[in-house]
Design a protein around this nucleic acid. Structure first.
Length: 672
RNA sequence: GCCGGCAUGGCGCAACUGGUAGCGCACCCGACUUGUAAUCGGGCGGUUAGGGGUUCAAGUCCCCUUGCCGGCUCCA
């Protein structure tokens, strides 16, 4: 055995080089000159810097700021927090503590939930642990040893029992126990004593000190053990951790920006919509300003659908029970539906039922109604594809804890269409539909997206496996042909068929599920839908369900947040406000306003008693795209002065030019 | 549905360990007539989400209901 090992070293920035090291050297020794290297990738596997090297190893330094490095940092931060928790609450049992986007969490079984004061105390203690500079020391153990050491940690014991399938046991459980040998990480103080230990796959930072630059506890909340509501609830502590204080600040600023954009907040500030308690949870009313935005969205959508060959239909909000028995909704979707109202029952004075009542349900989906329209007369192959479109309002009984602003409501309007076509037409029609959907989303200003393919939930589906396979394969083919990024979503399909969904990224990088396109062989079957083919035979059509906005309410929320309330002129509730320098200039602005109004522009003139700067402030805060200011100079020149939302100006624009400019921006649907 | 927190005029907030509600903005009235983010003065407005209880006394403490917020589960 040689005293020298030959390994390949690549730094975070440096190219790969071959180096000689002493036997027994560790990965960390290769990177003593790169302080931001916190773990190493050895032959493809992430390892601690204390990992001993073997001859021929390929070792790559991993920076704390890289994706892997951040995950390690956050996971180590979770350990620090868990140590702090067990210090203050010795009876706390450990759940799991994985890194997540922007941070980490750790779950604990404790006597009572954490209070905000507890979080402050825990954060202080965590800081102290960080300052102690404890090392993370890896130690391999057998299953039996682990069981003995962790006898007091029932959840860890459960994970040990599940280790071969830990990845599926619970989201995040994979960071605790890998598929191979079990390891325990000891947190060792400078004086060599062990402060704390945890069953963990690792790897970890060399020292807790590296956690201290930018970490913070955020909140606590309950979470079900292993993600199932059948299991006990643990208390989850959320935190965030970053390599530097500046990174932490930048993160906090992003959070603050998201708060400023929150559609619930903008909905109040801009007077767009509200949720009166009197109506009930998850049921919105749109105010005039919000109504304008919504109508502009809908009108444009109508025009586009008309051009694309859709026909418009209408259907009622409630229906007798039988329709949802035929569709299968009552078998598969009853939980999501409002309870039935019973009508028309006749009962004698003595309580005996003379005539049984009828159950009526609020509709959770529009498809059964469209099927009835299809089935209202004989259909020819010449009519296909038949594209039925409706702004259909549906009601879903969402659990009380999930209702959220306009994005998760109990009453919503879908821009819903059902396309009936032949099997042969199916692929072309799907391709066409996907193209239509993406084009329209871009028109609304969302042009960064990826696709998700949701496939059969083995627990919850109707129809034959063959049909599912064919439908799934077709959708996959169409999705792939689009050239967009495609992410699988196993088990995510609705009960009647697989779907492609379009996930759009907004202005600050968040993704939202927007449009869905679902292929369905089942409902046509259940409804016995048929058309007459060219050879005179009866054939079953294929059905494509698709919604573009998802729901108008949700899309409204997404657009509001995407634009931070500063809608492009074509969507803005008020497109132009005239601001006079003094009362004398009001008539001039009113003339300009009349010309704009003639061209269909939404315009107001602010003739109030406020001073001009106050008016500018008021309407800028209302995010009106064009302020037209007029004083003596403008009146004299037959002009107006533009002021935009960012404060920039364009003075002395002749009135006709100004009108044309505004009209042009609206027609071209550009942002200003 | 589950866990925790919260609920004060239209909006944003204040009121010490219980001692009978204040401020800013908005709104209304008046004065001022002004060139790019808040002119000045006056006024209206709350049985402190609703209900019950403890107490000499409840916005403050307890219980129930409703709603909201943060998560979990679920989902367009």
């Amino acid at each position: 055995m040689s005293a020298q090992l030959t390994v390949t070293r690549s730094g975070a920035s440096a190219p790969a080089t071959t180096v000689q090291v002493e036997a027994g050297a560790t990965a960390g020794e290769l990177f003593t000159d790169e302080r931001d290297v916190v773990v190493a990738r050895v032959n493809g596997e992430l390892r601690d810097l204390t990992h001993p090297l073997a001859d021929g190893d390929e070792v790559e330094g991993v920076l704390i700021s890289s994706e892997d490095g951040l995950a390690v940092l956050r996971h180590s931060a979770a350990h620090v927090v868990a140590q702090a928790v067990q210090q203050h609450f010795p009876e706390a049992k450990l759940g799991i503590g994985p890194p997540i986007r922007d941070g980490f969490y750790y779950d604990f079984d404790v006597e009572r939930p954490f209070t905000p004061e507890d979080l402050k105390t825990l954060e202080k203690t965590a800081q102290r642990i960080v300052k102690e500079g404890q090392r993370f020391v890896r130690r391999a153990v057998t299953d039996d040893e682990a069981r003995a050491e962790l006898a007091g940690e029932p959840y860890k014991l459960e994970l040990i029992g599940l280790k071969s399938t830990a990845g599926e046991a619970a989201e995040g459980a994979g960071v605790e126990v890998g598929a191979g040998e079990l390891t325990i990480y000891d947190n060792v103080r400078r004086d060599g004593t062990v402060a704390w230990k945890d069953l963990c796959r690792g790897p970890h930072l060399p020292s807790t000190r590296l956690v201290g630059n930018g970490f913070s506890l955020l909140r606590s909340a309950a979470a079900y053990w292993r993600g199932s509501e059948k299991n006990p609830q643990l208390q989850r502590v959320y935190g965030t951790a970053w390599p530097t204080k500046d990174d932490l600040k930048a993160y906090q600023e992003r959070v603050a920006e998201a708060e400023r954009r929150d559609h619930r907040r903008l909905g109040v500030e801009l007077d767009l919509f509200s949720f009166p308690d009197e109506i009930g949870s998850g049921l919105a009313v749109f105010h005039p300003r919000g109504g304008v935005v919504r109508r502009a969205m809908e009108d444009y959508s109508r025009q586009a659908h008309e051009r694309a060959g859709y026909e418009f239909v209408y259907s009622p909000h409630i229906t007798k029970q039988n329709l949802f028995e035929v569709s299968g909704h009552l078998d598969w979707y009853a939980e999501g539906m409002f309870p039935a109202m019973q009508l028309d029952a006749e009962v004698d004075a003595d309580g005996t039922v003379r005539k049984a009542g009828q159950n009526y349900y609020l509709k959770p989906m529009n498809c059964p109604f469209h099927n009835l329209i299809f089935d209202s007369r004989g259909r020819s192959y010449r009519e296909l594809p038949l594209r039925l479109f409706e702004f259909g309002t549906v009601y879903r009984y969402e659990k009380s804890g999930v209702v959220h602003g306009l994005t998760r409501v109990r009453g919503m309007t879908q821009d819903d269409a059902h396309i009936y076509c032949t099997r042969e037409q199916m692929k072309d029609e799907l391709t066409r539909t996907l193209g239509f959907v993406l084009g329209l989303l871009s028109d609304y200003g969302l042009d960064d997206y990826y696709l998700e393919l949701s496939t059969k939930d083995p627990e919850k589906y109707v129809g034959s496996d063959d049909a599912w396979e064919e439908a799934t394969a077709t959708l996959a083919e169409v999705a792939q042909a689009s050239g967009l990024e495609l992410v699988p979503d196993p088990g995510g399909a609705a009960f009647y068929g697989p779907k492609i969904s379009v996930q759009a990224r907004d202005a600050i990088g968040r993704t939202w599920q927007m449009s869905t396109i679902q292929l369905d062989f089942n409902l046509p079957e259940r409804f016995g839908l048929e058309y007459t083919a060219a050879d005179g035979s009866k054939q079953r059509p294929v059905m494509i369900h698709r919604a573009l906005f998802g729901s108008i309410e949700r899309f409204f929320a997404v657009l509001t947040e995407h634009y931070a309330g500063a809608f492009p002129p074509w969507l803005a509730p008020v497109q132009v406000v005239g601001v006079p320098v003094a009362d004398a200039h009001v008539p001039h602005l009113q003339e300009v306003a009349a010309k704009l109004r003639e061209r269909g522009i939404r315009v107001e003139v602010d003739a109030s008693d406020d001073r001009m700067p106050k008016k500018i402030r008021t309407w800028t805060k209302q995010k009106v795209p064009f302020l037209l200011i007029a004083g003596a100079e403008d009146v004299e020149a037959g002009a107006v002065s533009f002021r935009y939302r960012d404060g920039s100006q364009e003075n002395g624009v002749p009135v006709d030019d100004a009108v044309a400019k505004v009209v042009d921006a609206v027609q071209r649907r550009v942002q200003v």
